[in-house]
Design a protein around this nucleic acid. Structure first.
Length: 205
DNA sequence: AAGAGGATGAACT
DNA sequence: GTTCATCCTCTTG
């Protein structure tokens, strides 16, 4: 079943990042259904989190989506090349978000492989925020799209997977060295041992 | 108006 | 391990 507003409309974005593990992110774009099991996430908590684009409630054209209602996609361009997908969470006005960092391909493998220009399955397909986004066909053109409507072309499903806390690896977020002390917050989560967890290393103390 | 830098990934050596 | 592609966003002036 599809996740509804109540799942995203919670203040504890760090908990939501964990709860998203084992859920299924689905896209139906140009009649091509693609489904990936979420295996890696990171939480970004505005306004206090210096790693967040919305640190100190910085409201700009780019970050606007994060201040909107929960259950939408915040998608931005990174390094001029890579599109990054986030789940907007928390009440409208709070700019919390969860970054998607890795999916295990489940359905529509042929579409994902085609989008990535690959012929075989493996981590290169969708382990990493940029490549996971690309595999699912997502880009900044979908920034702000709702995941909650019955006719949404991007949505999240709970297929009954139970991810035990002991199977969740917790670590520091990747690529946020600019965030000072907040770079050490243990807000990266992944499913232990999964092939589609990105190799990126967070900072160690 | 200009410049710096980024929630990365791929292709190198 | 290193380099660099590539462009948008934000800050500063």
């Amino acid at each position: 079943m599809r996740l509804s507003a109540s799942f995203f409309d919670r203040d504890d974005v760090v908990q939501i990042a964990q709860d998203l593990l084992g859920k299924y992110l689905c896209t139906q774009l140009e009649s091509e259904l693609s489904v990936g099991r979420i295996v890696e996430t990171e939480a970004y908590r505005a306004p206090e989190d210096r790693a967040s684009h919305a640190y100190n409630n910085r409201l700009t054209p780019r970050t606007r989506t994060m201040f909107g209602p929960p259950g939408r996609a915040y998608i931005y361009l990174c390094y001029g090349i890579h599109h990054m997908f986030n789940f907007v969470t928390g009440a409208e006005g709070t700019a919390h978000a969860v970054l998607l960092r890795g999916i295990e391909p489940v359905e529509g493998l042929e579409f994902m492989l085609k989008r990535r220009n690959l012929s075989r399955l493996g981590p290169k397909l969708s382990a990493g925020p940029g490549v996971a986004c690309k595999a699912l066909g997502l880009s900044t053109q979908y920034d702000g799209i709702s995941l909650l409507e019955s006719d949404s072309v991007v949505w999240v499903e709970d297929r009954g997977d139970i991810v035990s806390p002991k199977d969740i690896v917790q670590g520091t977020r990747v690529g946020v060295a600019y965030a000072g002390e907040d770079a050490f917050l243990p807000w990266r989560f992944s499913i232990r041992g999964n092939l589609y967890v990105s190799p990126g290393k967070g900072l160690a103390r």
